[in-house]
């Protein structure tokens, strides 16, 4: 089932002098299996959006339909079920790690749900596999002895152990190096391929979203200002820049080349693909790479 967002508005501290509109009149369908990237400046409504989707916040107006249920109508004592279905990984999830070893940490969620030990074991193992944490090597490790990237992945595994059908990630790449990011890309892709998990990723860096997302949303002033496929970035460079977002360099180069009269295909995702299109146009594509 897709997620349907119909006319959602959210205002913080409504009716007080501190009233602040975070989201306004959002209409959006998120299809099953989609990996959606969301960008926007601080204060554009990104984090509010994620918190509405898993029922942490209730919108002031509008409907959010997940699996055919309008989650805005679910009573407070049943909202926990929504949070299991729609797993939200907060920014810097590693700061919430509190158990003394990796196994206990990841097992905490399923145990809390009353799941028996054998099934919990299975879930922990799967969550670790999905996040690239080798079970035997990491299960007994103390979380505070892990590297930043490893801790981040434990934080994500915590949520995956709840078997969510939708995964929301708030700035999952922040403060990670290249390797750390690459491992998280792998996890997201594998989840998507094996379980069809719909994933929504908030980031402030478009370069980080391009390798993994297939759709891009830019929010500004609480509204959706741009909603495009990820391979359409080079067609919208002006709009993206006007929204205060830096486009990936290779898309920018393609855009300028097109403007300077290159009759070139700019619908690409990666740097590799962009380089290939340029080479094709300039006729420097060597035979051995042409076939590959």
């Amino acid at each position: 089932m897709p997620i349907k967002i119909k006319g959602v508005t959210h205002i913080y501290k409504k009716g007080t002098p501190f009233e602040k509109k975070a989201l306004e009149d959002i209409f959006l369908n998120i299809e099953n299996g989609e990996i959606l990237g969301i960008m926007g400046k601080s204060g554009s409504g990104k984090s509010t959006f994620l918190q509405l989707l898993n029922g942490l916040l209730r919108p002031c107006r509008g409907k959010i339909i997940v699996d055919d249920y309008d989650i805005t109508m679910i009573p407070a004592d049943e909202i926990a079920a929504v949070r299991r279905e729609v797993g939200l990984v907060f920014q810097f999830p590693e700061e919430q790690i509190f158990e003394t070893d990796v196994y206990k940490e990841i097992a905490f969620g399923p145990k809390n749900l009353g799941i028996d030990e054998k099934k919990t074991f299975e879930r922990v193992k799967t969550a670790m596999k999905l996040t690239g944490l080798e079970y035997v090597k990491f299960k007994d490790r103390r979380p505070n002895e892990l590297s930043g990237g490893e801790k981040r992945r434990v934080g994500i595994a915590d949520i995956l152990a709840l078997n969510p059908r939708y995964l929301l990630l708030d700035e999952p790449f922040a403060a990670l190096d290249y390797e750390g990011r690459r491992k998280i890309y792998q996890s997201i892709k594998e989840l998507n391929q094996t379980r069809g998990t719909t994933t929504i990723i908030v980031s402030h860096n478009l370069e980080y979203l391009v390798p993994v997302c297939n759709r891009l949303l830019i929010l500004a002033d609480g509204r959706v200002k741009l909603d495009i496929k990820i391979d359409e970035i080079a067609l919208y460079i002006k709009e993206i820049k006007n929204l205060g977002v830096s486009p990936p360099l290779h898309h920018e180069v393609l855009y300028y080349l097109k403007e300077k009269g290159f009759n070139i295909n700019v619908k690409v995702r990666t740097r590799e693909e962009a380089a290939r299109e340029i080479a094709k146009y300039l006729g420097t594509l060597k035979d051995e790479v042409k076939s590959g």
Partner: peptide, 26 residues
């Protein structure tokens, strides 16, 4: 990106360092 282009036979001099310089070169 220069590295990617190099793989496809487009060679850059080290001084081509900004987006505009890269576009001009291409």
């Amino acid at each position: 990106f220069m590295q990617n282009l190099k793989q496809y036979g487009i060679d850059f001099k080290p001084e081509e360092f900004t987006v505009q310089e890269m576009v001009d070169f291409l």
